[in-house]
Design a protein around this nucleic acid. Sequence first.
DNA 1: CTGCTTAAGTAACACGTGTTAATTTCGAGG
DNA 2: CCTCGAAATTAACACGTGTTACTTAAGCAG
Lengths: 341, 341
Amino acid sequence: MPKRRSTSFDVARLAGVSRTTVSFVLNNVPGVNISEATRQRVLEAARQLNYHPNAMGRKLVSGRSNTLGLVLRQSPEQVFADAALLRVMLGIEHAVAQQGFHVLLKPVPPDDNSGYLRLIEENHVDGIILSGPRQDDYEIVTLHRQGVPIMLMGQLPDSEIPFVDIDTIASSAMAVRHLIEQGYRQIAMITNASLTYTSAQQRYAGFRKALEEAGIEFQETWLREGSYTPASGFEAMADLLRQPQRPRAVFVASDVVALGALQALKQAGLRIPEDIAVVGFDDIPFAEYCDPPLTTVHLPAYGLGWAAGERLVRLVLNEGLRETGLLLDAKLVVRKSSICQ
Amino acid sequence: MPKRRSTSFDVARLAGVSRTTVSFVLNNVPGVNISEATRQRVLEAARQLNYHPNAMGRKLVSGRSNTLGLVLRQSPEQVFADAALLRVMLGIEHAVAQQGFHVLLKPVPPDDNSGYLRLIEENHVDGIILSGPRQDDYEIVTLHRQGVPIMLMGQLPDSEIPFVDIDTIASSAMAVRHLIEQGYRQIAMITNASLTYTSAQQRYAGFRKALEEAGIEFQETWLREGSYTPASGFEAMADLLRQPQRPRAVFVASDVVALGALQALKQAGLRIPEDIAVVGFDDIPFAEYCDPPLTTVHLPAYGLGWAAGERLVRLVLNEGLRETGLLLDAKLVVRKSSICQ
DNA sequence: CTGCTTAAGTAACACGTGTTAATTTCGAGG
DNA sequence: CCTCGAAATTAACACGTGTTACTTAAGCAG
């Protein structure tokens, strides 16, 4: 039971060569000549000592930590409610693990704008994936200017920072178009979050776009703001039902919020979709098991994470990107909540 | 715009002292005498150069990385379905961040038993939090024997490895007792996972215990195995309903699985809780917004994470633990699915 | 045998820090 | 003026690796 971890020096001594040779052999350095005999001797010695190069020493000299920071700017409540986040994380991890990178988790509450600076100041991470970027986040712009590799999940208007996102406007327009094709024309909307968030704005824009294309005029009184939680959806929907004129369909720009909205509808004694149709957004795992199953826009969460990770690694390795932004396609998943038989 | 990060050497030069003095001042080393004048000069120089000690160098010499690995042994599907995981993660992060530690995310599929060995072999992390330990996971036992700090989330029978968990047997017994107190005596169970998992076994044991205490004899035909997903719950419940004799209540040992079960009940035209009562486990955020809202055992996910993180840090810092295992209390959340008016 | 080229291997430096042991400074007591 | 001890500061080593420049051995043509 060897207490001390064995170093490259130990391997060198056992193999009867220099430490340099060990490094050459184990890293397969190209353009260096090592005889097959010594190569085998080194490999055998390394195996025998169960040698694994210490990451620290390696990092120190290479200047790279082979670690990426995943920074979550959402508040704890939002994080809890974000069912897609886990899939995003797995996507990131699988993508970067292939290149030998690791993922460091760093939640930073919205009111703390410098909490993640240390990660790169102290060289803890080589780059940052920022989930839920906020418009007033100047630090991230500064960081990007200084050349720190950054990948946004979601977009930040008027910035040159690379990002990965879905084509939100097109996707939400697709969802609303689906309702229109089903014959609905009196359509309300509940947003996923306050309209100060980029993503909320875009989902709203798609809604407006689809209405416009169909020549349907928008009812200002049929817009409500959700805020990530089922509770907010419940409130918004209850408030909507108090309006003199009741919409025939609702586009709720978040499945989580839609869960609350569904409950409000049931409490009001309304049938779905007979009395009022509902379409959500995100396709959380439970959307399929709602009552009724929820028609929604499938967010390719795993793919988003994968793309973000893969692209950030390219940035760190200085391989460059073809285009700054990448927009993935979302698909509409039609279930019972919007199909009036 | 200084391209190169400034080092402690730069600070030393600017302050006109040696690098050693800089280290002493910035680390507030006790028992060393530094005149107030030079102390201020060093601090000012550090501020002026925006100096932050490079984590690599620090780690190399201290032998500690100040990073903990969060290893997820569940399959991707399980991870997706595990709604509590995010709260656990946040709990861990908040607890260890207070002590200056970071969290590295490392999903390791069940069929890969050595994927996380590198994390500690290469000294990437100082300790490991293992979520979803498996019985056949010999590596973790070996690691523990070698003195690697490890904290389990969940228990591993016949092992001395420190763990954090809820008192699962008591908690699930509490849930079943609640049903019994409501007057139900014909109670079926759907497990959260295959009974090869410790957690599934314990939840089942609690079920049996509550029945026994109430003098109710157990019906072998009323037990079904779920496997983390709503789909598995749907199947299990549908199969249960095919039995000649129908139970009057069901204890589903996972809210996620329960969602599928609920749907199966509705498709069969049964009313909840009038025809059949349902109690879940975990209290996922959506349990409150099911139809009907689900009675369930509230898993203190954030607290579990926090405790695991805090205790692992103690292990890493060699502060020792009072007891190997820590059992947190879970609470029953009574909602409509089990209250027949 | 000489001179040149190539294969094989290594000494030495760099990375940025923490820490021990040694050195210098300085004031006071004799 | 000398000495001694405490206060203040630093030289030097350690951590474990990657990499450059250099040395040695060997092969081969002339």
